[in-house]
Design a protein around this nucleic acid. Structure first.
Lengths: 245, 245
DNA sequence: TCGTGATGGTTTGTATACATTCCTTATTCT
DNA sequence: AGAATAAGGAATGTATACAAACCATCACGA
C-alpha cells in the first residue's frame, strides 16, 4: 500500500475525523481516482484497520462495498486489490457510459433550472481555468463535479445511480490508460457545448455532445491496437486440445 | 420472516448443502423473486444465521451484498428489510431496462450462434407451455432464463452486468405491483418475436421488440394514476416555512 | 382519552480470538 | 543447477462477546 497515502490518512485521523465503513469507502474511492492508490495495490484488512483506527469488521464491510462498486477486486482467501480493468472492459465501460449518460443528458435537456445551469457554467469555467494553469488534479475534480451533477439531477434516478457508477469507473480507467505523453485528458469546448445544448432544450444535441465527448476521451487513451484479441485458443487451439486429452 | 420459507431453507440445510454468504445471497434473491419473501419482510441477522447455520458475520456480508444489489434495504441500526421500491422507482427501473436491454438486444442481433438460438427457442416454448398449464412460477422461471441468457451473452459485459441487475429489479416490482386480477404477466408472442429479430440480425427490430415487450409489461402493472405526486411541500409549503422559523 | 416518558427486550455495531488458507522461502533430492 | 517439497509467516474466514442503539409496551399525569 502506498506510503504517502498511508501518512496522509493517518494525519486526517489524528485531526479527529470520525470513521465508519462509509468513510473508508469514500476515502479509498477518492484515493483511487486521484491515482494515489494505483491499480493492483494490495489492501490488506489489518493494515487498513490500523490506518483508520478500526477493526477488521469495519474494513471488511468497506471492502465488500468497494467490490460492489467495481473499485476493488475481492477474491476468496486473497488480499483485496485495487481493480485494474482490462482494455476490453475499458472499451465496454465507455460504450455503456455513452449510452447511459447520453440518455440522461437527453432527459435533462430543457429541464434544468437557471441556478443549476449557472452552477454548471461556473464549474466548466473553473475546469478551463485549472487546465490553463496546468493544475490537472483540480481540473479532474471540476470535470467530475459536472458529470456527477448531471447524474444526481437525472429525472430518472435509477439511470442516475448507474451513471454515477460509470463516471467513477471511466475515471479509473482514464487514469490507468492515459497516454503518458499527454499532460491532460482535456477536450476544450466539450463541456460548454454540452451545457449549451442542455440550456436550449436540444435533447438530440445534448446526447450527441455526450457521445462525442466520450469518444474523444476514449481516443486519448492508449488502448493498444484495436482488439488485440490475444485469443490463445485460436493460436494454440490444436495443441491445447491434444494436451487436454 | 415468512415461516414457510424458513422451513424450506432448513430442509435444504439438513440435506447437507454447504453455505457461504454467496449461497445466502442467492437463496434470498430467489425467495424474493418468487414472492416467498414479500417486500417489507424483516431479515434479522440472528434469525438468518440460525436458519442457515452460520454466524452473523456471514449473514452480514450477505446482507451488504444484497443491499448493493438493491434487493434489501440496510439502514444503520435497523433491521434489514426486503426492499419495496416506490411506484416512481418502478417506472424509472423499467425505463432504464428498456434502454439497456434494447441496446444489448441490438448488439446481439445476428451475433448469436445456432446453438444458443435453439436453446432460447426451447426456453420460449417452455414458457408458453408453462403458461398454458397455468404454472405461473415455472413460467416466470423460464422467462427470467431468457433475459438472463441475453444478459450473459451480451458482447458488452458491463452492459450485461447492468442488465442482470435490472432484470432482477423489474422482476421484484412486477411481483409487487402486479394487478391482483391478473393470473399472469405474460405477453404472448413477445419472446418469439424478439428471438426472430435476433436470428435475422435485425438490430432495430430487436431493440423495438424489447421496448414493446417492456412497455406492455409495465402496462400490466397497477402503478396508480400517472404520478400521484404527493408533494407535501407543494401542499403545506407555506406552513412548513413558517414552522421552520 | 390522549400524550409523554421510562424500561426491558431485541437488534445491530464493533472488536477480538481462533481456524483455515495461502504465499514465500529455505531445504533437499535428483 | 533446477525442481519439488516442507515449514513458517501473513492474511482471510468464521464465531462470539460486549456495547450501543432502537422499539414496543406500559405506566403515569394532564
Amino acid at each position: 500500500m502506498s506510503n504517502s497515502w498511508k501518512e496522509e490518512v493517518e494525519a486526517a485521523i489524528r485531526a479527529g475525523e470520525r470513521i465508519s465503513d462509509r468513510h473508508i469507502v469514500e476515502r479509498v474511492r477518492h484515493a483511487v481516482l486521484t491515482q494515489r492508490l494505483p491499480p493492483g495495490t494490495r489492501l490488506p484488512e489489518v493494515s487498513l484497520g490500523e490506518i483508520f483506527g478500526v477493526s477488521r469488521s469495519v474494513v471488511r464491510r468497506a471492502l465488500t462495498r468497494l467490490a460492489a462498486d467495481h473499485v476493488v477486486d475481492q477474491r476468496p482467501n486473497q488480499v483485496s486489490r485495487v481493480r485494474a480493468p482490462s482494455v476490453e472492459e475499458t472499451r465496454e465501460t465507455f460504450a455503456a457510459r455513452r449510452l447511459v449518460e447520453g440518455e440522461v443528458a437527453a432527459l435533462l435537456a430543457g429541464q434544468l433550472d437557471a441556478e443549476t445551469l449557472s452552477v454548471l457554467d461556473a464549474e466548466a469555467e473553473a475546469e478551463a481555468e485549472a487546465h490553463a494553469r496546468g493544475n490537472e488534479p483540480l481540473r479532474i475534480e471540476r470535470s467530475l463535479a459536472i458529470h456527477h451533477r448531471l447524474a444526481e439531477r437525472s429525472p430518472n434516478r435509477v439511470l442516475g445511480a448507474m451513471l454515477t457508477d460509470l463516471v467513477l469507473r471511466t475515471s479509473i480507467v482514464i487514469a490507468l490508460y492515459k497516454r503518458p505523453s499527454l499532460a491532460s485528458c482535456y477536450l476544450e469546448g466539450d463541456h460548454p457545448r454540452l451545457l449549451a445544448a442542455l440550456r436550449d432544450g436540444d435533447a438530440a444535441g445534448a446526447r450527441r455532445a455526450i457521445e462525442r465527448h466520450l469518444e474523444g476521451l476514449e481516443e486519448l487513451l492508449d488502448l493498444g491496437p484495436r482488439e488485440a484479441e490475444t485469443d490463445l485458443r485460436a493460436i494454440f487451439g490444436q495443441a491445447a486440445l491434444l494436451e487436454g486429452q
